[in-house]
Nucleic acid binder design. Structure first.
Lengths: 309, 309
DNA sequence: CATCGGCCATAAGCCCAGGTTATGACCTCA
DNA sequence: TGAGGTCATAACCTGGGCTTATGGCCGATG
């Protein structure tokens, strides 16, 4: 997705995670030494690391004084950007930890790809803060696979997106997910002031997921009254591929708002307003009929409920 | 903000940026060797790095075959999380690069902290994609400082949030920013089903920025009809401090939607619905009267326009 | 005023992660 | 059968990041 020639040397231009964490600690504690102690390294190590980072960025980040260190203006800004990298890394870590833990884990979660990708890491961070000793394992797959795992008692709690709950499972709607029409900034639709109407959307060839996907099902259902979807412009297998194709200007596409936050903010994609149709789908927690979530499953469920509107 | 005891060893549990980039390259190119070539390292180096990452995570990420390497299911998931870390790092890099470049840069931008922190990096990434050779320098400060830099021709284009454009500057509204009422999940307001009404909001002591801040001004103006703001619960100097206080349960606070995306998604904070008042402020691009943005400034401006609604 | 106790910087040395080259095993395809 | 692609293993090198030991600076304190 990212154009690589530019991104290729990223690691050489961005300080590593340890350095970013250190910077955050310095910002919070107001002293190199204290930050060093907190991270379990020596004071000279911290000093040299911060200095190396300043050399790398070409900007002074902290004002050293005999009474402590305070961030410079530039340092404040850099720290805020660093925080976002660290938060992404925390999400990565939370997910990875769940992925690593095997079947002996106390809480086994099965989730659809979209939820596992965009929402679960955040929930797991929250869960870890609330119940640090709960070990979670995660399995990601499509709705059918999630249902199978729950019914065979290989998972305690599942998350799926879709119109209805699968057979044999109880569920609770924990939120909703809008589908957005997006296009590259250069696309004519990106400059529309007047909202698209459903018939126009239905008549236009789009970049879509394969027919089985949840996104496509919702779209099909929503547009059936307007003549149904036109023949797709492209059919791709993953959300990432979809976004990449749209960004590169292949055409407009429709996907979850969860998936395109970054692209919209960076304006690699632009949202196209649509009127007269509601492209929403439910996000559900699911569990086997009768097996109401209890213990850690209940904790996680209560964390997620209402996380979205 | 982050509780450090847990986060402290993040760098030891998360692969470094180079490894994550490599993983993305493998995913995209379908072969360790090709990915290695793209990143300018040798094939054994790539092989060993991926292997080390798999050891660290305790999960197989790629299926090696004599005809190439494909991601496993777990690998797909990990790659998606990795992509988010890399994107945050790209934003960091874009910002840092602008910060580093000195006054000889072709495009000198001045921006308020909130915009510099949350929006500019994304725009700079987009600008770099569109005009790779445009060097940008960035200065962040409050609205007054931005205006000064523009009037003294130390900057070519500015960005501020607020109700009106500063004296002597032309401006274009490029978007809007909602102020949200948020509270920690444990706070009574977090469980409200009925929206807050403005009088109730005005009467409740909140965690706020100092009186001069843009956020506070908008809030003051919006609530003046309802008796004005109650005495603040706490007055803090930065958005980050605000969030930290709110997360730790000190009380409800009001801040830009731009600032709380992560916290809401991870449910460290919960949005409290409010009814009967519009807490919006304009985001404006500004420039000296008469000096319409041209060249690179125009490019950047057109990238940002409409990025938000 | 002398001293102590925080801060930070410098210096010298160690270690290992990540890089290299060289090689080999495996598979596929002309 | 050999050419060209895949990946893995081995032996080696280098440098970044760590350590400990030290010294300078400043402010608070008796």
């Amino acid at each position: 997705m990212a154009d690589v020639p530019l991104a290729a040397q990223l690691a050489h231009r961005v300080p590593d995670l340890g350095a970013l964490e250190l910077l955050l600690a310095v910002a919070r504690l107001g002293s190199l030494g204290r930050a060093a102690r907190e991270l379990g390294i020596s004071q000279p190590a911290a000093s040299s690391r911060i200095r190396a980072m300043e050399r790398l960025l070409g900007v002074a980040l902290v004002d050293r004084s005999p009474r402590g260190s305070r961030l410079t203006d530039a340092g404040t800004l850099v720290t805020d950007w660093a925080r976002r990298v660290v938060e992404a890394a925390e999400a990565f870590d939370a997910g990875a930890q769940a992925l690593r833990d095997r079947r002996d884990s106390r809480l086994r979660v099965a989730a659809s790809m979209t939820i596992a990708e965009y929402l679960l890491p955040g929930w797991l961070i929250a869960l870890r803060r609330a119940r640090p000793d709960t070990a979670v394992s995660l399995h990601a797959g499509n709705s059918v696979a999630v249902a199978e795992r729950l019914l065979s008692h290989e998972a305690d709690l599942g998350f799926v997106e879709g119109v209805a709950a699968p057979e044999g499972l109880d569920s609770a709607v924990i939120g909703h997910d809008r589908l957005l029409v997006v296009a590259a900034p250069g696309h004519p639709w990106a400059r529309r002031r007047t909202p698209l109407d459903p018939a126009e959307l239905a008549a236009t060839p789009l970049i879509l997921r394969e027919p089985g996907s949840g996104t496509r099902q919702v779209l099909d259902a929503g547009l059936s009254a307007y003549g149904g979807l036109a023949e797709p412009l492209l059919e791709l297998a993953s959300t990432t591929a979809l976004k990449a194709a749209a960004v590169s200007g292949a055409g407009p596409c429709v996907l979850s708002e969860l998936a395109v936050g970054e692209e919209l903010a960076a304006r690699r994609l632009v949202r196209v307003p649509v009127e007269g149709i509601r492209l929403r789908r439910d996000l559900r927690a699911v569990w086997p009929v009768g097996n109401r979530p209890a213990g850690p499953a209940r904790d996680l469920l209560s964390l997620t409920r209402g996380a979205l509107d």
